[in-house]
Write a protein that binds this DNA or RNA. Structure first.
Lengths: 217, 217
DNA sequence: TTGCATACATACACGCATGTATGTAACCTG
DNA sequence: CAGGTTACATACATGCGTGTATGTATGCAA
């Protein structure tokens, strides 16, 4: 069944296998145990394969990071206009076990200078995907409502905190208070959306019918 | 200078040195690089010393965890009555670089089964120090106001998220939006305190007999 | 078809952390 | 103060991951 394949096909397939194996190893056993032999054992290949495609583990981890950040950005094609929809999208991916792999790499970057030199730039670049500017419609509203951006970052950090709790719990399950916190976040997002929407509609009404603007604040 | 010391004095001093060295190593280089030789090198002793007092690294990490959780619980002697004061106490320790050591151990527990067997129980026990029940006055109020407990956990997870951002940033500094988020947290805590206080005063007024606690201060 | 680059596999030498065994000085008890 | 225990230091054997060098089979281009 091993049909003839082109060189690039074989390379891509091999790289994908190695990235997948490395990710699984990072999730299950952490960065320290994610050695070249372990990754190759999971991928079912010899170290020669790994050594041919990557110069080091850090090199491979770069591809792992790219792959993971792409997965975490799913559902971001349509621009999100509300904090609530942003939150829902974030909640759909925050509990993925792969977050632990990212966490391991974040820490490994700080612990290993050589790895950090390779990955810090990539981490910083990927982090911009989660800034308000990644949601153009929201970013515009935040110009009018700085409080909206504050709520955005509050939601962001809280989700990270919950994800960390999952990643460090024995079986990868969420804490007991998880649902309570999430409900609180949803309420906050909806309230802030209402505030931003309200003044927007006001402004629209005012611009079509000029009058006093003094009722705000 | 090296006066005669009793056995327990020498043991305690040695253990403290090893715990301190291990903590520093965890913060600066992570769990993977925190080997017996590295800890002993930092402590300025040989591996014989370590091997005499601890059976394994996990054993030593148990003491490290105890020491760290104690440090993070400082200022908790007087019972905190408000979410705001709880938050202020939490903020006074959340940015300590030692948080990274705890983080490393949390992950190491999940990655190394033997270490987890030794430390998971201790982690769970220490975690109870940060539940609402650790603040008796607050816990009582939460019985009347479940929303208060929701705010409590929201604050808790957000601070963890911010601490993680610090622990994983290249130089251990906080993110750009850190102050905005903290201000948001303070506002939330104060508002929730006001809500809980208001209905409490109402109830006190209804029972109308001044009694013991109604007019403290 | 020939020649070469690609895509792996195999084998060896090296560093490093660990476990253990043994030696020695300090302390403590009767 | 003598015997035993505690508190270390030193030394050796072992396992494991890594880097590197070399071998071999498969696509690919002239």
């Amino acid at each position: 069944m091993t049909a003839r394949q082109t060189h690039t096909q074989r390379s891509d397939a091999m790289k994908a296998k190695l990235v997948e194996a490395a990710t699984a190893s990072l999730v299950e056993r952490g960065y320290a145990a994610t050695t070249a032999v372990e990754v190759c054992r999971r991928a079912g290949v010899t170290r020669g394969a790994f050594n041919h495609h990557y110069t080091s583990l850090g090199d491979l981890c770069g591809d792992v990071l790219d792959d993971l950040y792409t997965r975490f950005s799913i559902g971001r094609d349509e621009p999100q206009a509300t904090l609530q929809s942003m939150l829902e999208q974030a909640l759909s991916v925050y509990a993925l076990p792969e977050f632990k792999a990212v966490l391991e790499l974040w820490l490994a970057c700080r612990n290993d200078a050589k790895l950090g030199a390779d990955l810090f730039a990539k981490v910083a670049a990927c982090a911009t995907r989660f800034e308000p500017s990644a949601y153009p419609h929201l970013a515009i509203r935040f110009k009018q409502h700085p409080s909206g951006e504050a709520v955005y970052w509050l939601i962001f950090e809280t989700i990270i905190g919950l994800a960390l709790a999952r990643a460090t719990s024995p079986m990868g399950e969420g804490p007991a208070h998880e649902s309570v916190v999430i409900e609180q976040l949803i309420t906050m997002a909806r309230d802030q959306d209402a505030v931003m929407c309200a003044t927007e509609n006001q402004k629209n009404a005012l611009s079509s019918q000029p009058g006093s603007e003094a009722n705000r604040r």
